[in-house]
């Protein structure tokens, strides 16, 4: 059951600037996200959380170390392959939803599929499935301005995981929501991970990080602690025995 991770950061460092003025945003970080797993990253501002997420999403390149998404080394990819990876394998969820206002919920979700060359009709059908999976199929024809923040964030999650995309990278996804709505969004993210996606969640809210299987603490670009270890055959046996 536990095969290779969906996302692997292998001894990744990211240095901004040179020599005297060099800043180590990340320093030798190793992190795995497996299918079915939600991993949260916590840390004070400036600890490297955003850098980590940008590297995982192929928006930035490590100074050293490897970023591997679904078995492909992101650093070794051409720009064209990288763009394809971002369309096909992973999706982002941001604090401010980032939906396109002139498109309906379904069109927003279908967009990455269409950009990837799928016919509109087929893309929309797959988008509907994805909206259904986050519990808002009935909002398919609504425009973002006619949806609540919580609904828009569900659309963003549906878009992040539409079709064969299996990795969702979430940057403070509950930051703009009240606590009840934020929890509902976390519940959806959790459910999508339980259904087989991998999730990497950056948050400063402990209450929201607690929905993750593992919480990783980042400080000055280094992982200083974690609440658990990545799943292994043994740990699966242990948890089965505990139940």
């Amino acid at each position: 059951m536990t095969t290779s991770p969906i996302l692997l950061l292998d001894n990744v460092s990211r240095v901004h600037g040179h020599d005297e003025t060099a800043v180590r945003a990340l320093d030798g970080v190793t992190l795995e996200v497996h299918a079915g797993e939600l991993v949260a990253v916590m840390g004070p501002s400036g600890s490297g959380k955003s850098t980590l997420l940008n590297l995982a999403g192929g928006l930035d390149q490590p100074t050293s170390g490897r970023v591997v998404v679904e078995g492909s080394d992101v650093g070794a990819m051409s720009l064209r392959d990288l763009a394809a990876l971002r369309r096909r394998s992973l999706g982002f969820v941001f604090q401010d939803f980032n939906l396109i206002p002139s498109l309906t919920a379904a069109e927003n979700v279908a967009l990455p599929l269409e950009l990837d060359g799928l016919r509109v009709g087929k893309a929309l059908r797959i988008a509907l499935d994805s909206l259904e999976a986050v519990g808002i199929a009935e909002l398919a024809d609504r425009y973002p301005e006619h949806m609540s923040g919580g609904q828009q964030q569900r659309v963003a999650i549906a878009r992040a995981l539409v079709g064969n995309r299996r990795l969702v990278l979430a940057d403070e996804p509950t930051g703009a929501l009240d606590s009840q709505t934020g929890e509902a969004v976390l519940r959806v993210l959790r459910a999508r991970c339980d259904a087989g996606a991998g999730g990497l969640l950056v948050t400063h809210e402990a209450r929201h990080a607690a929905w993750a299987d593992r919480v990783v603490f980042l400080r000055d670009g280094v992982i200083v602690d974690t609440t658990g270890t990545p799943p292994s055959a043994e740990s699966l046996l242990d948890s089965a025995a505990a139940v």
Partner: peptide, 16 residues
Amino acid sequence: VQTQRTATLRHLQDLT
């Protein structure tokens, strides 16, 4: 502080 925070977060995961 970090040791305590990790332990409390584990507790929070259990509660969740």
